[in-house]
Computed example of a mutant assay.
Amino acid sequence: MYQKSNPIGKLMSAFFFAFLLAVIGVYAGQYIPPQFIWPLAILELVLVIIVAFTRNRKGLGYFVMYLFMFVSGLTLYAMLAHYVSVLGADEVLKAFIIAVVAFAALAIYGSMTKFNLGFLGNFLFFGLLVLVLVLIAGIFIPFSNIVNLIIAIAGIGIFAGYTLYDFNQIARNGFEEEDIPTIVVNIYLDFINLFTYILRFMKYFNSDN
């Protein structure tokens, strides 16, 4: 049960406008030269860190959140363009629909279940850390298709778990208005990463094994 001080309506409104900014960023991303993608990706990471440290400064927190969403959209365009070229627009759309349905189902279950899924936090963080290290290693070591498939499955599992965990903890613990920017960024990252790893999973079946 949310307390009156926990503005669920403001959270949903903030997420809607933030996601809209990300969509606008995706559209604008087609005009960004490729050499700017990596600097923008680094800026995106910096903004995520800043959001976490601006909890007590609501105005700044919202500004950084919206800026992050727009920058994320800019970098997301390059990823989507890659998968459209590899899989085709229809398959990318199919992956998006699957991600939306899965995300919604996980969010609803996580919010409504009577179980406290807080115990997942440490396991998910460890899994994410291992995944990041493997992805960094993949920059220097070419992986086989089977390894890429395992990475995709692991990524889907981790971010499906984070979706369950985040919504469960929001429902059980509530939130204050100053928490909204961090929550919006967290659930956006849950969805985008789930979508990304579903695309990686689908790419395996469209590559030469």
Results as ranks from 00 to 15, higher is better:
residue 81 A to I: 00
residue 90 D to C: 02
residue 103 F to S: 11
residue 91 E to G: 12
residue 80 L to F: 07
residue 87 L to V: 05
residue 101 V to R: 06
residue 113 T to Q: 13
residue 91 E to K: 10
residue 87 L to S: 07
residue 103 F to Y: 09
residue 85 S to V: 05
residue 87 L to M: 09
residue 105 A to S: 12
residue 87 L to F: 00
residue 88 G to Y: 02
residue 78 A to E: 07
residue 110 G to W: 09
residue 78 A to Y: 07
residue 95 A to F: 03
residue 109 Y to G: 13
residue 79 M to Q: 10
residue 87 L to C: 10
residue 85 S to N: 14
residue 79 M to E: 06
residue 105 A to G: 15
residue 108 I to R: 12
residue 80 L to M: 06
residue 108 I to W: 14
residue 74 L to Q: 00
residue 114 K to C: 09
residue 106 L to A: 15
residue 83 Y to G: 04
residue 95 A to H: 12
residue 94 K to T: 04
residue 91 E to Y: 09
residue 97 I to W: 14
residue 93 L to Y: 11
residue 85 S to T: 06
residue 88 G to D: 02
residue 92 V to R: 00
residue 111 S to H: 11
residue 90 D to H: 11
residue 85 S to C: 11
residue 99 A to R: 07
residue 101 V to P: 15
residue 74 L to Y: 00
residue 97 I to P: 14
residue 108 I to N: 15
residue 80 L to C: 03
residue 105 A to C: 13
residue 89 A to W: 09
residue 101 V to T: 11
residue 84 V to S: 12
residue 86 V to H: 00
residue 103 F to H: 12
residue 83 Y to W: 01
residue 81 A to S: 05
residue 79 M to Y: 03
residue 99 A to C: 13
residue 99 A to Y: 01
residue 89 A to D: 07
residue 90 D to V: 04
residue 108 I to L: 08
residue 89 A to V: 08
